[in-house]
Design a protein around this nucleic acid. Structure first.
Lengths: 238, 238
DNA sequence: CCTCGTATAATTGTATACAATCATACGAGG
DNA sequence: CCTCGTATGATTGTATACAATTATACGAGG
């Protein structure tokens, strides 16, 4: 239950307010709650040791994110995430990460660029040592730096949403060491394009970066990670 | 207060659950609550004739949408929407509407295509008669048909979000009869491209459609519609 | 006069109580 | 045996009560 103290920053950011929200979200994305399953306020509240009030607030947020659907006076039902959803997200992200890279080229600060360079070097180091955990962490951070650098609150918001959405899938695919190195190399190219102020190239590279990530994911069994929707067909029959 | 019975469908969709949410949202987008203003739960609750509970739930949703920022144990502060935000949204939408048009070309059903054709004809009729209200309504519907036709839950969700976000600006610019007719014509071209199964052309046209809408908006005084942020500078000084 | 600490007020966070709505089961009537 | 209506239980919707936290005001001490 209390697996939220792994990273201190994240803990502080989410503890108390939003802890319930992120826990339920995690449980949906991890497949604990299956598609079309009904979520009861009291049951989840008891499981997390809180009353219905915070649970209800979390439900409202989850509905807005599209993870559950709330039917008034009836209940909250898990929407789930299908293979097609993941594919769509990567296509959408491909476009938006491209736009982000373009804007980042125009707006990035010296500090951000330096952190990006450091990130790339560090990632290559950890890749050579086989430190998978750090690679995933640095990959997260690389994209986050770019989201900040693009200087657009709106774009940043959308990309963060999508990024989190597929976080579980990403963690799985980045565990593949080959893709990890390829991904790092793509990060380097993007970074260099940004540094050279070549916005068009940065956009094109970021575009490809997403497509590559997606194609690799398909190759490495995206279906398996999300076979939950098959088993939910029985659920639907009820 | 009770201006929600203009359109029956919308009323039913939002009444009871979500009414509070949409009302507060409307008040933020309309500029009633200015940037950096603190929203008190009890005050808003009394104004809407409800207790704190529904207000709090609405706050959580609004935060997720980025319209307010909630600082734990302190308060909820209006984030507002700046000129740059609107510009960014249109650039983002340009890409996503393009993608949507492409996917719609591949997935649209006969019924949807027929409704789209009907929509275009109707819009041209009302434009010739100068019925501005109907034009805005049909414009909404045109895009909504395409969102449905693209057959992507994720893309549909994002585009609806953005669409609503700039709804107020759009209503203002579509009041310009010239842009209304130009917009209708662009709708027709998109529709014809979809009908001809020319996905690349549909994408390109939808792209341009957004850029044109944005450029027209700038010309017609986008700044004026959102000058609220200037006045909020004083607020910030407090 | 300024600084710091305590006390008070205001506001949010959470839990609980009550109301409204929906699902289910059971039995009367056909 | 089936259908419909009512009654009961479960679940959500809302309001209120209490706890925790934060902001403010005031006064003691330097």
């Amino acid at each position: 239950m209390g697996n939220y103290d792994v990273k201190q920053e994240v803990t502080d950011k989410y503890s108390l307010r939003g802890r319930v929200f992120h826990k339920i979200r995690e449980d949906i994305l991890s497949g604990k709650y299956k598609e079309h399953e009904e979520l009861k306020e009291v049951a989840i509240g008891e499981e997390l040791g809180v009353s219905r009030t915070p649970v209800r607030e979390a439900f409202r947020q989850l509905e807005l994110e599209g993870l559950i659907q709330i039917i008034p006076n009836k209940g909250a039902y898990v929407t789930g995430i299908t293979v097609k959803d993941v594919k769509d997200i990567y296509m959408i992200r491909s476009l938006l990460e491209g736009l982000c890279a373009r804007w980042a080229t125009e707006n990035i600060t010296e500090e951000q660029l330096e952190e990006m360079e450091e990130n790339v070097y560090l990632a290559e180091f950890h890749a050579s040592k086989g430190h998978l955990e750090q690679i995933a962490e640095l990959d997260n951070r690389f994209h986050d730096i770019m989201y900040e650098a693009c200087n657009s609150k709106m774009l940043q918001h959308s990309l963060r949403d999508y990024h989190e959405y597929v976080l579980r899938v990403r963690k799985k695919t980045l565990s593949d060491a080959n893709r990890g190195e390829a991904s790092n190399h793509e990060h380097r190219l993007i970074m260099e394009a940004i540094k050279a102020k070549d916005a068009a190239r940065a956009e094109e590279l970021a575009n490809r970066h997403m497509i590559n990530a997606y194609e690799n994911m398909v190759k490495n069994g995206l279906e398996e990670a999300y076979k939950q929707q098959e088993s939910s067909e029985e659920e639907k029959a009820k």
